[in-house]
Structure formats: structure tokens, C-alpha cells
Design a protein around this nucleic acid. Structure first.
Lengths: 388, 388
DNA sequence: GTGCGGTTTGATAACGTTACCAACGAGCCA
DNA sequence: TGGCTCGTTGGTAACGTTATCAAACCGCAC
């Protein structure tokens, strides 16, 4: 690194002590708020400190105390509303406990996550919240071995004995899809943002994003419970891009026996799916019933308002931070999984099976990875937000 | 703090040195990657380090180097999509420069911001990005005096000689509203999320959120340029809550000479306004033309797609981080304001002045701070996101 | 065998705080 | 007066790294 000038020398405890005419240790006790000191000296020291403009050096303090009063947080992407909320939840609880939060984005890349965790270990954070993207947990175990408690957020990791804070993804998905089956739907499609690992039935957590797998399992269960045969499963895996989900839905809806109900397992998929349905002029729920995962701020903006599975995202983050605070304070309870409830929020996007299949207005092209402009709009967002 | 056990002792350089049979200084040079050392000893030390599981103590390093490789970021609320994006922009550039980001939310409270900045000073962050909520800048000057460069994000602060990264709010707002006037609109309303400081014409930055004031000024200019009299200004200040904006729009639209065009100066206002218009069954742009500020992910989801003023939010954050990196590396350039361009994105929510005033379907109540349920929906989001 | 550049090496002193401990004085009781 | 306790005080040793500097070493020319 060329030319990195050191910051200017700052006022230290010895300076204040000299100026106050007391010993270093005394000044240190007053300024550090520990030990005992007489009211008189306390006043003298404080006055000297104010006069000189002293401010504690937290680095030096951390050096000796071994505590940095810092939490490391690794999420896929703060820009994603889900993680933003979770981070907020962590930050609020952390702040109350006098901890600050260092943020790192993994972009779903295991290597990025690992190097972030490594940095956090070196920085001696007091605790770590991770929404794991990496399939293994060696790096996390290393952190634990180094005395840093780790809490997994949003996703579990098989084989790891770590505190984990998740929602009942499987149950929530099953409950949601059951609404469809109870209303008589049999052609129920699901659109999910994940890599297309088709044999995810195996439920190999860590092999893919855990939540997705769980939600798919819930979907499958609901179908099975309704006596719908395996062959009737309509699953579309799309990448972490809204336009992919859009294409997937356009393709699904162009089928002669198109689905009458649609379940999307994350924000991005929901966004793309709705985009497609609206362009097709599909009536919701007249032509298709829709349930999305996660209660985005726009879920109540679209008409009809979207029925969703709502997660207590902020609480999830808060709980994670809470567990860390407890562990930092010495709790040695056995790590366990905390499963919060995700609730189904009924709005207006679900209804009975349509009596007949109404033709939709298809634009020129109907499928393929690249979406075609439907015309009329000359502005599209420059950046497409990532998954969930 | 009761019962806060210290973390376990970790492997240090002396440990590695002993194990490798070399002097501390030598081991330190190898592990720290500075000074010179023979290939043989380097190998020995590295092997010993690996064997013992040594990892650098960044705190100790910071202690002596005076650098923490950390950036402090204070925004109003990460949960807000705008700030989330900005933070992402900061984080990305910071990461490339080997810096980590510590996050703090001010919730638009000056005191919260100040204590966060104070903590950052004590922690000896290398730089500070602040979206100021406090009207004064004493605390920021203190940071600068302590050798910590500060960059203001999103909002300027009068009288502060600090690097500032903003968009041309006034110009962008004026350009947007001009679309309305050019199309012949004369009854143009603006809904803004800010405290109702009516004489904001004075342009006292810091007295309120700067961006809002600027955008209102742009609105006023556009009206004036079109020869629309002062008295025809239709400004509604609402709190940082979507339902407030909704009520404001319901009230606006219930007027006999209701507006034919609507400009919202932030995300939350846009969300509330659209909610109201949709409930009223208002045709967009048939009955009202709408332009919003900030290109939210749902702007292209609603039909018609929403025309907006789009800010390069991520670049804003990136630029802020970039400036900091430069200053950390010794740049002493005079602090200046960097104004990025916000662009108008034309979609389908704007049109000509309607020929006649079509009656709207009003629900029972039309105004008042508390919004009434329009019925039919049994689920509303538990949390209403905050401003912008 | 001696002298001389250069690299490599290792003691030791920072950095600014807290932890530890011995010393001091006041107050009290025997 | 001696002895004890207790609040207060200040010197000094940590913490784990980097910075400094002198000593040791090497090869090579004289």
C-alpha cells in the first residue's frame, strides 16, 4: 500500500493524567469507569479529559479485554429486502446490548462467505450471524473453536452443531399449498429461485439452499396429502433473476393444461411470476390463484392483494442476536435449532378452480431464457435485484 | 456486566516462533508479510503456524498501525430499500479496498446518529459515511479533527466542509413535474414524507431532510416555469408511514377540483399514494398521472408501470466509499459536493389531462389520519416500512 | 586472514488500555 | 499507642502485534 499516512496522535490516558496531576492508573480508573476513586479526583480527571478532548481508544481496550463489542453478520445480499430486514433485526438487538454490527455480503458464494468469516475471526468479533451459502461448515467450526459463538440464520446446515434460527419452511409451504388443494386445485405449479438441482428430493441440505428445498418438500407433501400423483408436480427452478421467473411462468401458462394455481417460494420468483401473469392479462384468482413466500411491501399494493406466507424476518434476526448475546455472556447451553412460525396471510389472490380455461393474450414470444419486451415501456430497472 | 468470561487464549506469534525454533521478530516478519526472511525460515514458520492453527490478531495489528480497515456507515434505516442499496454500494467498494463496513441505523434521530458517530470515533474507524439526520455537524467535525474522513451521503449539510455525495434532487424533481406541465396539467399535487414544516421555502438545509426540501423546490420551480400561480400548489406533508400518504391522497382526490397529476417524493409516499388510487378505482393515467421518486423493484410490477425519477443509488454509495478510500490513502483535496444525475424513467403512468372528471368510488370514510379498512382483505403487513 | 556490502536475524521498545498489587492515609477499636 | 480495616492511589506488568536497531552471518574481493 503506497502512501498511507498514519492518523494524528491522539490524547491518551497518560496525557490526561499529567494534565490532571494524578497517576495514570487513577485517570484510567476514572475514564474507564472501573475501580474506585474519590469524587474530587474524579472531577479533576474528567475536567482534564474534557479540556484535552480525550476519547477512549476502543481498540486498545479490546486488545486487553479480548472483547470487541462487535457482531459479524454474513448475508447473501443486504439489498435483498429479506436480508435487509433480518440485518435490521440483528442490529437493533445488538445495539441494545452495546454491540455494533459489521456487515458482509456473500452473494451466495461459499468462498466469499468463508473469507468474510476468516476476517471476522481475525478481527475478533464477539459473535457471528451467518446465513450460510457454503455447503460445509469447517470455517464456522473454526470460529467456534476460536471462542466465537455462531448462529445460523434463515438456513440450517446438516451436521453442524450450531444455534440455528429458521422458520418452519416445510410446514408453512405445505399449509399454503394445502389452501390450493382444499379449494380443489390439482394443477399447482411452483416457481423457485435456485439452481436446477432436480433430484433435490433427496433432501441433501447444504447441497442447495436449504429453505428452497424445505419449501419444495412442503409443496410435495401437500400434493401427496391431496392424493395428487407425483407426475403432476409442476416445479420450475429459475436463477436468481426476476426475468427468469417471468419466462418460466410464461412457459407454464402457455401449456394447454396450464396450472390453475401458482406457488412462488421467494420474493424474486413472485415478482417475476406476477409480472408474467399481468402481461398475459391473466385474472387473479379468476384464471390462476397465486400465493407467494415472504410478505414484501408491494404484496398489498398489487391488485388483487397477494396472499402470502409471511415470515417474522426481523424477529429472526433479533433472536439470532439475542442468542449470541447470551452466549457472549457465558451461556453454554447446547446449541439448538429455533424454529419460528411462518404464517399464511390470506388476501385476495386465491380462489376456486376456474370453470373453464380462458385464453390469454400472449405476446410474440412465450418462452426462452431471454424475455422479450412487451412494448410500450421504454424503461426497465437497470439492476435486477437478486434472489429470495 | 455480570459474568462475561474472556475468550480462550489463542495462538500468538511467540507461540509460533517457539514452535518453529526462531525468534519472535522473525516469525512476526513472516506472518505479517513484511521485512525480509530466507525461504527456509519462511517455510518453517508457516508450517509451525499451520500446525498450531495461528491466525492474526487484527486488533493488535490495528493497535499499532492505527488503522482498523473499517468504515462506519450511518443511515436512517437499512430496511429501507434506498439505504439498503446505498449500503451495498459502499460495502462493495469498501471490500475491494480491504475495508469492512460497520452499520448503524439512526432512525432519522439526530441523537442516535451522534452516539453512533461517537462510537465510531472511539473504535477508530478509518472513514465514515453518514446520511445525516442531525441538523448540526459538530460530531462530524470532531471525527474529522480526530483524523477520520467523513462523507455525507444522500443529503447535504449547510456550513459543513465535508465531501458530499448527492443527486440533483431539485433538477430531477423539476424535470419530472415539467412532464406534467408540458402535458397541460395545472392541478399537480405532491405528496412528501416529511415533518410538516410549511415554510420550507426558506431552504434552511438541516432544518428538515434536505432531499425533501430540494425536491419540493424543484416542484415549485416547474409550476412557476409553467406560469401556474403559487396558490395552486398542492403540497401534502405526511409522516414516515405509508398509511398517512394513503390518507393524504384519499383526501386530495375527494376534492371537487381534484388534481390530475401526482408527484410523490419518496418510496413510502408512492406506496401509499398508489394504494389510495387503486382503492378509489382511479385510472392511471386516465384519471390521474403519477410520477414517483426512486425506482423501486415494484415500480415495474404495478400496472400501468410507474414512471419514476431514478437515482443511481448504488453508485452513490460506491462513490462515497471511493472518496473515503482516497482520503485514507492520503488525499487532501478540498472537500466538495459530488452531484450525480437522477434520471426520469418514462413508463405508462403519465398521460394527458383527462377531458372530464370521472367520479371515483369512495369507501365510507375518505380522510383522517387513520385509514379505514376497505374490506375484503384480512391481512395487512404487520410492519409498515419507514420513510423514503 | 582481513575487510566490506548485503541479507537475515532476534532483543527490545513501542501502541493505549486494563489488571494487579503494594503502599498510603484515615478512621476505628482495644 | 498499636493494630486493623477500608477506600484510594500509583507504579508496573500484561495484551499481541509492528518498528527499530544492532548483531550475526554470508560470500567475495583484497
Amino acid at each position: 500500500m503506497p502512501n498511507t499516512p498514519r492518523p494524528p496522535r491522539r490524547v491518551t490516558i497518560p496525557d490526561v493524567a499529567r494534565h490532571a496531576g494524578v497517576g495514570q492508573a487513577t485517570a484510567a480508573r476514572v475514564l474507564g469507569g472501573y475501580g474506585s476513586s474519590s469524587a474530587a479526583t474524579r472531577e479533576r480527571v474528567l475536567a482534564a479529559a474534557a479540556e484535552l478532548g480525550y476519547s477512549t481508544n476502543a481498540v486498545a481496550r479490546s486488545m486487553i479485554s479480548g472483547r470487541t463489542h462487535t457482531l459479524g453478520v454474513v448475508v447473501a445480499d443486504v439489498e435483498n429486502a429479506y436480508f435487509a430486514r433480518a440485518v435490521r433485526g440483528v442490529t437493533d438487538v445488538a445495539a441494545k446490548a452495546g454491540l455494533q454490527v459489521v456487515l458482509a455480503n456473500s452473494d451466495e458464494k461459499g468462498d466469499t462467505e468463508k473469507s468474510a468469516v476468516q476476517m471476522f475471526i481475525e478481527r475478533r468479533v464477539d459473535g457471528l450471524v451467518v446465513a450460510p451459502a457454503a455447503a460445509d461448515h469447517e470455517h464456522l467450526d473454526k470460529a467456534v473453536a476460536a471462542g466465537i459463538p455462531v448462529v445460523l440464520l434463515d438456513r440450517a446446515l446438516s451436521g453442524a452443531t450450531l444455534d440455528t434460527v429458521v422458520v418452519d419452511n416445510r410446514g408453512a409451504a405445505e399449509a399454503a399449498v394445502s389452501r390450493f388443494t382444499e379449494a380443489g386445485h390439482t394443477r399447482i405449479a411452483v416457481v423457485t429461485s435456485a439452481s436446477p438441482d432436480e433430484n433435490a428430493t433427496q433432501l441433501a441440505p447444504g447441497a442447495d439452499i436449504w429453505t428452497t428445498t424445505e419449501r419444495l418438500t412442503g409443496y410435495r407433501r401437500a400434493l401427496r396429502a391431496a392424493g395428487i400423483p407425483r407426475g403432476a408436480e409442476l416445479i420450475r427452478h429459475t436463477g436468481y433473476d426476476r426475468t427468469w421467473a417471468r419466462s418460466a411462468v410464461l412457459e407454464l401458462m402457455s401449456s394447454p393444461d396450464r396450472p390453475t394455481a401458482l406457488f412462488t417460494t421467494d420474493n424474486v420468483a413472485t415478482l417475476g411470476a406476477l409480472d408474467a401473469l399481468l402481461d398475459l392479462g391473466a385474472r387473479i384468482p379468476g384464471d390462476v390463484s397465486v400465493i407467494g413466500f415472504d410478505d414484501a411491501e408491494w404484496a398489498t399494493l398489487v391488485r388483487p392483494r397477494l396472499s402470502v406466507v409471511s415470515q417474522p424476518v426481523q424477529e429472526l434476526g433479533g433472536l439470532a442476536a439475542d442468542i449470541l448475546v447470551r452466549r457472549i455472556n457465558g451461556s453454554t447451553a447446547r446449541p439448538r435449532r429455533h424454529t419460528l412460525r411462518a404464517t399464511y396471510v390470506s388476501r385476495e389472490s386465491t380462489g376456486p378452480v376456474p370453470e373453464r380455461v380462458r385464453p390469454l393474450r400472449f405476446p410474440g414470444e412465450t418462452d426462452g431464457p431471454a424475455s422479450t419486451d412487451v412494448g410500450g415501456r421504454d424503461g426497465t430497472p437497470a439492476d435486477t435485484p437478486r434472489h429470495r
